[in-house]
Simulated assay, not measured.
Amino acid sequence: MRATYGGLSVAVGALLWALAAHPSSRRAGLLGVLLLLLGMAGGRAVGLICDGPANAVMIAYLLLELSGAALAAWLLRRPD
């Protein structure tokens, strides 16, 4: 559990930070953010479908994930 929810999260954050630090790799970082957030939102949606109604916190997380994905997609469409 610590490896998945602690170590992996720190490593992904460090990778995205490194990608954002260099203009030549920012698009790759944005694509990573887009895919990660869509994956999280998709997994959360499957959970909501399988497990039934969610509380307000889960709905808020889903909306934040979708909003972040939309922002990343918008930034990817902008010219460099």
Results as ranks from 00 to 15, higher is better:
residue 49 I to P: 00
residue 48 L to F: 06
residue 67 S to N: 08
residue 10 V to N: 01
residue 3 A to N: 06
residue 47 G to C: 04
residue 71 L to W: 09
residue 50 C to G: 02
residue 11 A to F: 09
residue 61 Y to Q: 00
residue 20 A to C: 03
residue 50 C to E: 14
residue 50 C to P: 05
residue 7 G to K: 06
residue 42 G to H: 11
residue 10 V to H: 04
residue 52 G to L: 14
residue 35 L to T: 12
residue 66 L to V: 15
residue 43 G to M: 11
residue 68 G to W: 14
residue 50 C to M: 14
residue 77 R to L: 08
residue 72 A to K: 12
residue 49 I to R: 12
residue 64 L to P: 01
residue 47 G to V: 05
residue 4 T to M: 13
residue 24 S to L: 12
residue 15 L to H: 00
residue 46 V to N: 02
residue 41 A to I: 09
residue 71 L to Y: 04
residue 14 A to I: 14
residue 78 R to Q: 13
residue 52 G to E: 02
residue 57 V to S: 05
residue 20 A to K: 09
residue 46 V to A: 05
residue 42 G to Y: 10
residue 6 G to V: 08
residue 55 N to S: 07
residue 65 E to Y: 13
residue 45 A to T: 15
residue 53 P to H: 03
residue 50 C to T: 15
residue 28 A to G: 04
residue 53 P to F: 02
residue 52 G to Y: 01
residue 30 L to M: 07
residue 56 A to R: 14
residue 65 E to L: 09
residue 61 Y to L: 06
residue 29 G to T: 06
residue 50 C to I: 14
residue 60 A to F: 13
residue 9 S to C: 11
residue 39 G to Q: 10
residue 20 A to V: 04
residue 13 G to M: 06
residue 12 V to C: 07
residue 32 G to E: 07
residue 60 A to S: 12
residue 31 L to H: 08
residue 35 L to Q: 06
residue 74 W to E: 02
residue 41 A to D: 01
residue 51 D to R: 11
residue 63 L to T: 07
residue 31 L to S: 08
residue 26 R to K: 13
residue 33 V to T: 12
residue 24 S to P: 04
residue 30 L to R: 13
residue 14 A to M: 15
residue 60 A to Q: 08
residue 79 P to C: 01
residue 78 R to C: 01
residue 65 E to M: 11
residue 36 L to E: 01
residue 68 G to K: 10
residue 31 L to D: 00
residue 42 G to K: 14
residue 62 L to Y: 11
residue 35 L to I: 15
residue 79 P to S: 07
residue 79 P to V: 00
residue 80 D to P: 08
residue 22 H to C: 08
residue 41 A to R: 12
residue 56 A to P: 04
residue 34 L to Q: 10
residue 51 D to E: 07
residue 53 P to A: 13
residue 18 A to I: 10
residue 55 N to W: 02
residue 14 A to G: 03
residue 21 A to K: 09
residue 50 C to N: 07
residue 65 E to H: 11
